[in-house]
Simulated scan of single mutants.
Amino acid sequence: MSKFFKHSHALVESEAVGEGTRVWAFAHILPGARIGSGCNICDGVFIENDVVVGNDVTIKCGVQLWDGLRVEDGVFIGPNATFTNDSFPRSKQHAFELQQTLVKSGASIGANATILPGLTIGARAMVGAGAVVTRDVPDGAIVMGNPARVTGHVDDQESP
């Protein structure tokens, strides 16, 4: 008996899903993915094989997590946020240089933000809705716009 909740219309092929995680309708988690405990994976989320998701992560509707993505504990990923893992994608190109992206603990990614491959989103950083992140985001930075620019910093007293 599994120790996580799986909606009857979700497809969870991975056996590495942590206790207390909830996987909602039409989510698809491939066999190689590793998902921590206490996560909330909302409707229509797709998670590829070479993805690691930490504990207490929220992934809202319409998000795809592609190979090479590492998400640390306590991260929030807003609806339809987009991650990429190939900086020069071409049709029918099966061999490409997979670029690893890291989202550090406590970071928040706003709805419809786009994160280019090979970047690091710093701990507790906030990426604004619709931002296009083209470079690393420092710990605690707030970034917005296209391309995303630092517009402020998260209060150090805020809980992670």
Rank of each mutant, 00 (worst) to 15 (best):
Q64G: 06
G78W: 05
C61I: 10
I77Y: 00
L98P: 11
I59W: 08
V75N: 06
V63I: 01
T84N: 06
P79N: 04
P89Q: 06
C61Y: 10
A131L: 10
I59N: 08
V57F: 03
T84C: 11
R70D: 12
K104E: 15
G106R: 00
G106L: 03
T114S: 14
Q93L: 05
Q64H: 13
G68K: 05
P117I: 13
Q100V: 14
A95K: 14
K92N: 14
F83L: 08
T120F: 07
L69E: 03
V133Y: 05
K60E: 15
V132Y: 13
R124V: 01
A131K: 12
S91L: 12
G128P: 07
K92F: 11
T120E: 14
G74T: 02
G130W: 03
P79H: 13
K60F: 11
E72I: 12
G122P: 05
E72F: 14
D73W: 09
G106E: 01
V127Q: 09
K60H: 13
Q64L: 06
S87N: 13
E97H: 05
S105N: 05
V103Y: 12
F96D: 01
W66L: 12
S91G: 15
F76T: 04
G62S: 02
G118V: 05
Q100N: 11
A95W: 05
D56P: 09
Q100W: 06
G106A: 00
P89Y: 03
N85D: 14
G62Q: 04
A113F: 00
V71F: 04
L102V: 11
T134S: 13
T120P: 07
A123C: 13
V75W: 06
E97S: 13
A107K: 02
R135T: 13
V133W: 04
V127R: 07
G110T: 08
A125N: 08
R70Y: 10
A111W: 08
